[in-house]
Structures are given as C-alpha cells and as structure tokens.
C-alpha cells in the first residue's frame, strides 16, 4: 500500500530535518496513545495503541533510521506487531527549502501481514493513509508553533 503527502512549513530545513531525526519528538505526533524511546542513534522502540472502528489494539513497534542525507532526506523503517498481525512501513522523507520555509514530501510503502491483512483489510485500508496524514499534520503544527 502506497501512501504519500507533503506539507510546507515556515521553518528552516535544518530544524525540520533535526526534528524527524528525534524519534521521540517525531512519534509524539501520533494522535494515538503511545510510548516510544530511543535505543541508540539509529533505533527506537515502544508501543502504540491504535485502531479504526472496532479494530483496536496495542502494537509493539521497532523503528530504525535506514538512511540520512543531511537536510535532504531521511529513510525510516517501521515495524509493528500486534493483534496477531504485522505492519511494516518504509518511509522516505524528502526535504527542500525555499524562501525560508521547508517543503517536506513523504512517501511510504506500507505492508500489512496476518489477520489484519487477511480479514481486516477492508476496514483498515482507508485509515492507514489518514493516520499517516494526521501524524505529519501534527508535526507541521508543532514545527510551526515551535
């Protein structure tokens, strides 16, 4: 499942780039209840309780930064397990600066596994997009305020 979106924020690229390199700050933009801690410079882990409609559960998540090009690009791999199912996502965040503001273009390739994919997909499909959009919108707001 492909997801994508972009936003423009009145903030220098260096700051936006740094924000997304902080796993705690970045995952704090999830609207669902969560707890995330950094394991080391490249890895983070924690839990997120999320859902749509009836489907709701706690996922154990592990994330890792799989690529960094300062002020240009960040690659993140997210891996979650819960409800007997798996979620794996490869996110690419591309940054560009113009006239003092930053444009962030994000794309993601999301793979669902297990019962969520087999049985729950018709319930989940629309939501993954929304959740991702919500996360980045919250990030934009934070960056704007800060």
């Amino acid at each position: 499942m492909e997801i994508a979106g972009d936003f423009r924020v009145a903030s220098p690229v260096g700051r936006v780039y740094a924000f997304f390199l902080d796993p705690v700050a970045f995952t704090d933009c999830l609207s669902d209840p969560h707890q995330v801690r950094a394991v080391d410079a490249d890895r983070f882990e924690g839990t997120v309780t999320t859902g749509v409609a009836f489907i709701r559960g706690t996922f154990r998540i592990r994330g890792s930064y799989t690529g960094r090009t300062p002020d240009r690009q960040i690659r993140i791999h997210l891996h979650g397990e819960g409800l007997g199912s798996g979620v794996d996502a490869d996110l690419v965040l591309a940054f560009s600066e113009s006239a003092g503001s930053t444009v962030l273009r994000w794309t993601g390739d999301v793979h669902l596994s297990g019962p969520i994919a087999t049985i729950g997909e018709r319930m989940v499909k629309g939501t993954v997009d929304q959740k991702a959009a919500g996360l980045f919108e919250n990030a934009r707001k934070k960056l704007e305020v800060g």
């Binding site: 793979h111 669902l112 596994s113 297990g114 019962p115 994919a117 087999t118 049985i119």
Partner: peptide, 13 residues
C-alpha cells in the same frame, strides 16, 4: 496470495 504472501481468502467471507 498478495505480493507480501498474505492469504487473501482466510475466512468464508
């Protein structure tokens, strides 16, 4: 099966 290997007919639905 989809490309991720998910069985797309895992119930009588």
């Amino acid at each position: 099966y989809d490309a991720d290997g998910n069985n797309r007919a895992g119930s009588f639905l």
